[in-house]
Amino acid sequence: MQRVNMIMAESPGLITICLLGYLLSAECTVFLDHENANKILNRPKRYNSGKLEEFVQGNLERECMEEKCSFEEAREVFENTERTTEFWKQYVDGDQCESNPCLNGGSCKDDINSYECWCPFGFEGKNCELDVTCNIKNGRCEQFCKNSADNKVVCSCTEGYRLAENQKSCEPAVPFPCGRVSVSQTSKLTRAETVFPDVDYVNSTEAETILDNITQSTQSFNDFTRVVGGEDAKPGQFPWQVVLNGKVDAFCGGSIVNEKWIVTAAHCVETGVKITVVAGEHNIEETEHTEQKRNVIRIIPHHNYNAAINKYNHDIALLELDEPLVLNSYVTPICIADKEYTNIFLKFGSGYVSGWGRVFHKGRSALVLQYLRVPLVDRATCLRSTKFTIYNNMFCAGFHEGGRDSCQGDSGGPHVTEVEGTSFLTGIISWGEECAMKGKYGIYTKVSRYVNWIKEKTKLT
């Protein structure tokens, strides 16, 4: 034993070699072989497995989906700052455009905790909710729209109204504003409101030439003092309507412009014939205590009207009353817009006519005020429907199939267009061939041609 100890002390290297040989010859039971080890760690190889990531292109799944990435790591994937920024906006807080917040056709661009709407022409605001041009839906104005110097929408209202708090709607500024039905039992019968379409306001006024200088022999019209197929109006439903009495009662109609003036057809009036105007009328054979009678003290036909040349060209006249009318729910003026808007309103496509005229061709006159909704007829169809001249200051309205029309005794009465609950004068009943005849239409004086003249002559002093 002493000898062994001496050998170990003198030859430590020998001992180490012996131990190493023993270990190498022993069977290893701690580690699995290569094949079995792979069965336990069965993990798919990654895209760049075996390579240094710093030297390969980034992978979106590896960089940002398996674990949260930084902007720089995302930049490695896209290799483009702009594309990385677009991805980053949604990656950080989701897609803010998912709810489609942009209105009126706006395009949404996502941002971090926010979004941006790219608005089409005519709109602005956070969600493109603000109209900035009158060309689109009248700028959301209830009545009139004008573009300011910086191309912003400025709404306005006709006389007797003021802008509401929203700067879009119009509200009454006087007790009985024009064009409004205020009798409670008839307010439910107000005709369907007309909503502004998209309009090209630059070209809204037709490029028409008034044929002022045409000389033409007097034409022989049949029954051209021209509501057939209409309905009984309720008291106060058309408070701007008046009836004219002269040699015979209810020979023509008219509309209240203001307390002192009536507008009617020029062919209705004769110099030297006494005319009485009755406002607030409903049943011409009954006294309903809503009527107001006034005498006409002055007749002003349009300066281009000449019955000797043509009885229905420039067929418009103004009547001055001896005493002002007292405005109330049964006696209310009709609204008159400017030339541009009167023309736009007419193009809405349908209007209402009213009167006490004959209820059928050569038949009896109506006792109760009649009204009828009539569609506008395109000019080409209008011209083809008659052998008589249709001037540019006239328009056609009615039904091709016949059966409904204005008729004798309705002449001078109103053709009105309702705009968001307020009625505007767009025409004056003038003439036609018979009444409600198939293929024939009622012919009306186009008020847009005469609004400046009306307003100039009827100013209240």
Results as ranks from 00 to 15, higher is better:
N393C: 03
S204Q: 05
L383F: 14
R298P: 00
K45N: 15
W356C: 03
F87M: 15
T158S: 07
F424V: 00
C178Q: 02
T215A: 11
D223F: 10
L211C: 09
K168R: 12
D338N: 11
P177Q: 01
V377A: 07
I316V: 09
L14W: 11
H34F: 08
L32E: 15
E76F: 15
E418T: 07
C18G: 05
R384M: 10
W118T: 15
E159C: 03
F144W: 02
G349E: 04
M437L: 15
S49Q: 15
H282W: 12
C382G: 02
A397D: 02
S187E: 08
F221K: 12
R62A: 04
F360K: 14
T215L: 10
Q90E: 07
G106L: 00
F123N: 03
N151V: 10
K438G: 14
L52M: 15
P12K: 11
E82Q: 15
A279C: 03
N306L: 05
I214E: 14
Y371P: 05
G351S: 06
I112G: 08
C102P: 00
G439K: 10
A9Y: 12
N306S: 04
V368Y: 06
D338M: 04
N138D: 03
T381Y: 13
Q90V: 11
S220W: 06
W261G: 00
V377H: 02
G349P: 04
N135L: 07
G13N: 10
F238A: 04
G246M: 05
N258M: 02
E76L: 15
K459C: 10
L325C: 01
E433C: 08
G349T: 04
Q241D: 03
A207H: 12
R358K: 13
D111Q: 15
E165K: 13
K455A: 06
N222D: 11
V326F: 07
A307Q: 13
Y305R: 10
F424E: 00
C18V: 12
K311R: 13
S220Q: 10
A265C: 03
P172H: 05
L23P: 03
F121S: 15
Y115A: 01
E86G: 15
T386Q: 10
N258F: 02
A279I: 00
I17R: 03
L369N: 10
N38C: 03
L103E: 12
T84Y: 04
T16N: 04
D322S: 07
Y330T: 03
G409T: 06
K455W: 05
R404I: 14
G160K: 00
F345R: 00
N127G: 02
Y352V: 09
A250D: 06
D198M: 12
F144G: 01
I17M: 13
D232C: 09
F123V: 04
Q57M: 06
H289E: 11
Y91F: 13
G363Q: 10
G122K: 03
N452F: 05
L369Q: 06
D322Q: 06
C69Y: 02
A233F: 07
R364S: 14
R404V: 06
Q216H: 11
I7H: 14
T332N: 04
A436G: 14
A307G: 13
T225I: 11
T218V: 09
N104A: 02
V447T: 06
N59G: 11
S187N: 06
N100A: 05
H302N: 04
D223L: 11
G280F: 02
N80H: 08
A37M: 04
G179R: 00
E208K: 10
I136L: 07
K274H: 10
N42P: 14
W88F: 15
D378W: 03
K457D: 02
N222P: 08
N36E: 11
S99Q: 08
C117V: 01
L376K: 06
C119M: 00
C335Y: 00
A317G: 03
S182H: 09
N80F: 04
L327C: 04
G280W: 02
C170Y: 00
R83P: 15
F31V: 15
E159V: 07
R62F: 03
Q167Y: 09
D198W: 12
E231M: 09
G13M: 10
L23D: 03
T389M: 06
V278L: 08
L32R: 10
D33H: 09
Y305K: 02
V359N: 13
I299G: 04
P324Q: 05
R379G: 05
G254S: 01
T342C: 03
E142D: 09
E54Y: 08
V154S: 09
R379W: 10
I443Q: 03
L41S: 15
Y441Q: 02
D198H: 12
G398H: 03
C178H: 01
Q219D: 08
E116K: 07
I334G: 01
R404G: 15
L372F: 14
Y441T: 07
N203H: 10
D212L: 07
G432P: 14
E418D: 15
F55M: 15
L24V: 09
G13R: 07
E98Q: 09
F176M: 05
N343D: 15
V92I: 11
C435V: 03
R43Q: 15
K152P: 07
V174G: 06
N304S: 13
P375K: 15
S99N: 07
K347C: 03
K438D: 14
G413C: 08
T332H: 06
C119Q: 01
P177W: 01
F176E: 02
L367G: 14
R364V: 10
P172D: 04
A164T: 10
T133Y: 04
Q2T: 06
